[in-house]
Write a protein that binds this DNA or RNA. Sequence first.
DNA 1: CTGTATAGTTGAGGCAATTCAACTAATGCC
DNA 2: GGCATTAGTTGAATTGCCTCAACTATACAG
Lengths: 151, 151
Amino acid sequence: MVTMAAGSKAKEEAASAAWRLIFDYIVATAADRVAVLDRLGITPAESRALSSLDPEAGRSMRALADEWRCDPSNATWLVDRLESHGLARRVAREGDRRVKEVVLTAKGKRMRGDLVKSLYTPPRDLLALALGDLEALSAAASKLPSRRTLA
Amino acid sequence: MVTMAAGSKAKEEAASAAWRLIFDYIVATAADRVAVLDRLGITPAESRALSSLDPEAGRSMRALADEWRCDPSNATWLVDRLESHGLARRVAREGDRRVKEVVLTAKGKRMRGDLVKSLYTPPRDLLALALGDLEALSAAASKLPSRRTLA
DNA sequence: CTGTATAGTTGAGGCAATTCAACTAATGCC
DNA sequence: GGCATTAGTTGAATTGCCTCAACTATACAG
């Protein structure tokens, strides 16, 4: 486009190059994440469920189904799974007994902590980078809008 | 550890910070990738299958099953799916008719191209970064060992 | 107090992905 | 030529994830 700001083309190329490298790296390290779930004995959906539960506060089934963009019955199924693993339990909300608050059990909190810690642990190769590179990486990445975050 | 090289601690922290930011960003943009697969009408497994097929050369079922770390019968099932979508076909290898080479059809090449291009297209927010940040990102990321790459 | 809306569950069903065991077909070595 | 090996397929079964329709229980508005 003729009316584009100067430097826009260079930026697009730089963004493409950066994204491609990051994307490839994520793909290359995917097995690490699978291994974490295997070790914890949970499925991807359970891991997502676990990470959207706050260790302190409970959340209603409805709120969870909304976040997961799924049918309420699917949320029931998923929370049932967490319960059957002893990771969460339902508590009727005071004042409105229709709603069930899902809260993590002690085991659930422990597992969630383990999960988050493991996923947030940088892959080995990242440590091979120079300190300067890592700082540049952080500096740039910290300017990205991270819509959500674990723990 | 006392015997660690000086600066190791700082590096670990820098690596953690960088990885956490990148990881959160990947999670935050996951829906974009799902949308790409939806648009192309393929499942995650089909997308992986598609991307491990070379647009020029064929690959044996065996090689594919090895790469996917799955049972040969699972590879059969997956390649059947690609075939039923008109994306690939099997050709008996000259000289050893036991092995079937899986090759992309014209449609398969087109779809693979679309897939790779879409996945490699940087999310919008990345373009909001300053050119300098993007270049720093690329410079650092290019030092990572990317074990494999698409197209 | 009656009807409507909301929260959640249950049951049935379906597709995707995967494994295992049994099988067929082609190769290639004595 | 006979036999072990290798490539691939088929069929049965399982699991995970997900949707829809029907249902129960509670809350709330008029």
